[in-house]
């Protein structure tokens, strides 16, 4: 932490145009998506994305709790985004805070626009996102995990929902910020995209971008989302492929 504590902003983009972890401006961090790791949930997914580790579980459609939130002609989507106390360097005070409430709300609204809610009147689709380890972009990792979990739960949807953050760092527009870039960069722009229709269902911004930069950032983000989309689909294929056969002895034991 020695050099970061100083008032001097660290150099985030080197003279060769590479970032502090050696990535190019349009490169994603390494990503691993696992569908269905949890047995008790209707659907689940685990995402490891750079140093982020996020678990998502989906329940439902099921009876709405509390009852008064029930809507007569469609399902509601409820989301709880939570960061573990041990997910960041300094212990995070556990429980709801303003940030997690906001993120829960925008994620729920993003998913409300992709699930076919009319098919399940008076029910609730409950999405739980637990951030186990955080390194910037956890809401995007949460959306990716939750989306795969929703598909794993067999909930009808328009499409999967990949998400990524784009930002401005050291004057450059770069894809998928990591923690240092998020902390010391000039702007952060998380987004979630419906790949088949090109519709954007979540877009937030922190910091400053001019119109031209915003357009470039959106283009970069859309490309990132499409790459993530493929990983999400592959995770679901892997989950439901059956080879090789399980030895009978193993099942019996």
């Amino acid at each position: 932490m020695g050099n970061v504590g100083a008032s001097e902003v660290p150099q985030l983009i080197g003279p060769d145009g590479l970032r502090i972890d050696g990535r190019r401006a349009d490169e994603l961090r390494p990503m691993r998506v696992v569908a269905g790791p949890l047995k008790r949930a209707d659907g689940s997914a685990f995402v490891e994305w750079g140093a982020n580790k996020v678990m998502a579980a989906v329940y439902g459609p099921r009876e709405v709790h509390p009852r008064h939130l029930q809507v007569n002609d469609k399902a509601i989507v409820q989301c709880k985004y939570n960061m573990a106390a041990f997910s960041v360097d300094e212990r995070k005070r556990p429980g709801l805070d303003r940030r997690s409430q906001e993120i829960s709300k925008v994620i729920a609204e993003a998913f409300e626009s992709v699930v076919f809610a009319e098919e399940f009147p008076r029910t609730s689709i409950d999405v739980y996102i637990e951030v186990l380890q955080a390194n910037a972009g956890t809401r995007c990792a949460g959306i990716v995990a939750a989306s795969v979990a929703l598909a794993d739960a067999g909930i009808p949807m328009v499409d999967l929902l990949p998400a990524v953050a784009v930002g401005k760092v050291g004057g450059h527009i770069v894809l998928d910020l990591k923690k240092e870039e998020d902390n010391f960069g000039e702007a952060d722009l998380p987004m979630a995209l419906v790949p088949q229709s090109g519709r954007m269902v979540l877009l937030q911004m922190e910091g400053h971008l001019n119109l031209e930069e915003l357009k470039r950032a959106l283009d970069l983000g859309v490309g990132g989302c499409r790459a993530i989309y493929e990983k999400m689909k592959q995770a679901l294929r892997d989950r439901y492929s059956v080879d090789p056969p399980t030895p009978v002895a193993e099942v019996a034991a």
Binding site: D42, G43, G60, P61, R62, D152, A153, G154, I155, Y240
Partner: peptide, 13 residues
């Protein structure tokens, strides 16, 4: 099974 296309769900309630 032309002209019918079906999707058999693998999961779901």
């Amino acid at each position: 099974k032309p002209p019918i296309v079906r999707v058999a769900a693998l999961s779901g309630r």
